[in-house]
Design a protein around this nucleic acid. Structure first.
Lengths: 155, 155
DNA sequence: GCTATAATGTTATGATGTAACATATCATAA
DNA sequence: TTATGATATGTTACATCATAACATTATAGC
């Protein structure tokens, strides 16, 4: 299946799911999600403004993009990388299974990001170890920086 | 020992260490470090500009503060929280033992931050689990958000 | 269709961070 | 000791990330 068809399929499913759950996936929100799905790298909000103008032949203010991102984040369709102020489509949108808390491996060289689900046991141990100190975790999103296998090889 | 004396002692040690290793801890760099040591919370660069003006009766541009932070970061005296764009003094400056990669527990309510050293074994497992995927970690700094024991109790 | 609510447009501004070049200070070698 | 090169700081401008406030438009449900 081509990438475009795959993205179309994801978007159709998201449209369907939003309808089911009463979320209003407007045309523009859908377009922003589409842009994030098409990219291989995370984008800043202003990157999205640019991509939107190019690919949708229509301009959108940064303010609007931030609002659409807020919607997509709340819907769990998009993640924000707090360490780089960038946004990317959740790589599990299409899955049926329960979404886990995401962990991101961020390549500081080529800037590609892999969304991984670390071993649950390991995460639970990490969580337990932290909560033993009396601290309560609100999120287990981890952002880990380094080099992807490809960039590492080139060194 | 009073807090002020404690901070003075730390600063003296840092001065001594920098002299030993040829790092130039100038008056202003020392002042910025002092401000971070005096705070119980992490500060943004612009917070430091303000604090500097008040406590040192002298103004410093944001540009200069960023440069001084760069120096202090490179010297391992200060950490940057990438998820909040804030800076804080390393809580182990005075220790003799090898500094570990820091992990931060950030209270999203009161904004206090605890620098913890998680169990080495756990971190090694985490690292191994990640590197199994072919990814090479460049930093193991973790920033974990939640509620500190105090704020949790108040809920 | 009317009305309340949600979504988007528009403008301005706050917050974080860096580029580029000028000046000052310091270490050290002639 | 002063000339010189390197390091540190000053200064200005600007890039980048994000939100406040208020106007307008679109939509859902009566």
């Amino acid at each position: 299946m081509t990438t475009i068809n795959k993205i179309e399929r994801i978007l159709k499913k998201v449209e369907h799911d939003c309808l089911q759950s009463g979320l209003r996936l407007t045309k523009k929100r859908r377009n922003v999600l589409q842009i994030l799905l098409q990219e291989q790298e995370p984008l800043s909000a202003y990157d999205i403004v640019e991509r939107y103008k190019i690919t949708m032949a229509e301009s959108l203010s940064a303010m609007s993009v931030y609002r659409m991102l807020d919607f997509l984040l709340a819907a769990g369709l998009v993640h924000k990388l707090e360490t780089t102020n960038q946004y990317l489509a959740c790589s599990h949108i299409i899955c049926e299974h329960q979404h886990q808390i995401p962990q991101f491996l961020i390549c500081d060289q080529c800037h590609k990001v892999e969304e991984v689900g670390l071993c649950k046991q390991l995460l639970d141990e990490l969580k337990a170890s932290i909560e033993n100190t009396g601290f309560s975790l609100l999120s287990q999103q981890l952002e880990l920086h380094g080099l992807c296998a490809h960039c590492k090889k080139q060194e």
